[in-house]
Amino acid sequence: MMTTQTTGRTLDRPALPEPVRLPRRRHRRRSAQRVARWQIYVPLGLYLLFTLVPFYWMLVFAVRPRGSDSLLPWPITLENFDTVWNGLGFGIFFQNSLMVGVASLIATTVIALSGGYALARYNFRGRQLFMIAMLCTQFIPGAMMLIPLFEIFRTLGLVNTLWSLVIAETVFQLPLSLILISGFIRNIPMELEEAAWVDGCSRLRGFFAVVLPMLRPALVAVGSFAFIHSWNNFLFALMFVSEQEKFTVPVGLAYTLGEFSVDFGALAAGGVVAALPVVLVFAVIQRYLVQGMSAGAVKG
């Protein structure tokens, strides 16, 4: 049996190769991120500047004194808002627009919810043709329907009433609302409703207990679009309503323009009053709006 003997001297070990230095990818990555941020922030900043400058000028004209040409609104005055709200009757216009917007929101949401559920859960003959017809109605301008709608409202005795605006707004908002809600309901698994039926729920009770709570983003998106469209609509309110006490905010803004002169301060103050509810609505519902639009646009 062979044995190895150790001596007092140390064995020479071969030198280890030096570690290979990799290129500085971290620095390159940081520079790439900086370039990417620059490419994103600069276009967004320009777009934001282009969008906010008109609003800034409107606010400046609304709060600066008459005859002033300062770029900064100082000293601030609320005289123009008092003229618009009390002198021109914008309080009544604001109330009329709010009534029409809320009524259109409720009617559009309820009808679209029932119709969207039927389109999503029931298979019937002509369903695809009906969906195509709903899409085709979006290509029809509202101005082409003014004379037929006016004749219908005149026959029903609804001319010069706010109900004519509610009906017209609801009819024009329903096609898109039906498509959005039906697409959202298709993404909700049918097994959830079937489980509720097994537990003893009827179809209606299962809808309210299972489906309706999951439709909050879609309902917010549909309702907000219906409200904002009815709030900003000028054509229907101009054609179907003739009495001043029934004007809405867009028509009231148009009547601030005189024949030979324009009160820019009052016009700007009215624009601020008209834009404030829309801005508040978008600020509250923005997180639901994107979710509802994206979910309703995907086919389940």
Rank of each mutant, 00 (worst) to 15 (best):
L158E: 02
A62S: 06
M190K: 12
C201N: 14
E18Y: 15
R13S: 10
L146N: 08
I188R: 04
A62P: 00
T10L: 12
Y288K: 08
G87E: 08
W197E: 10
M134N: 08
V262G: 12
P213M: 14
L52H: 05
R30P: 04
W38R: 13
R26A: 13
M214E: 08
F282K: 12
S202R: 14
I111T: 14
A218V: 05
F225Y: 10
M131S: 10
P213T: 11
V272W: 02
A275R: 03
I185K: 00
M145P: 04
L98F: 15
L72H: 05
S230V: 04
Q33L: 09
D69L: 09
S68E: 06
L238P: 01
L49P: 03
G183W: 02
P75C: 11
Y41W: 15
G101A: 06
Q138P: 03
F225I: 08
R66L: 14
R64A: 07
D12N: 11
L113P: 01
G101T: 00
A237F: 02
P19W: 06
V273F: 03
V20D: 08
A269F: 03
M58N: 04
D69Y: 09
S31V: 08
A237Q: 03
T83W: 04
G87V: 05
K246I: 06
D69G: 11
N86R: 08
L22T: 15
A297G: 06
F150G: 01
M134I: 12
A120P: 01
F247A: 02
T6I: 14
T3V: 15
C201I: 06
L238D: 04
S104L: 04
T161W: 03
V84D: 00
R9Q: 11
G271Q: 02
L204A: 08
I92C: 02
D69T: 06
M293W: 10
L178M: 15
L289Q: 05
L59M: 09
F153T: 01
N187A: 14
Y47M: 12
G8P: 10
Q39T: 14
N123F: 14
V102W: 03
F260E: 06
V100P: 01
V278I: 15
A62W: 02
V273D: 01
A143K: 11
N86F: 15
M293G: 03
R25W: 06
T4N: 08
L129K: 09
I140M: 06
S242H: 09
A133V: 10
A196K: 04
G183R: 01
F234K: 12
E169S: 10
V110W: 13
L178Q: 00
S242L: 14
V273P: 00
F240D: 01
I111C: 10
A266Y: 00
R28M: 09
P250E: 05
E259C: 05
L78N: 09
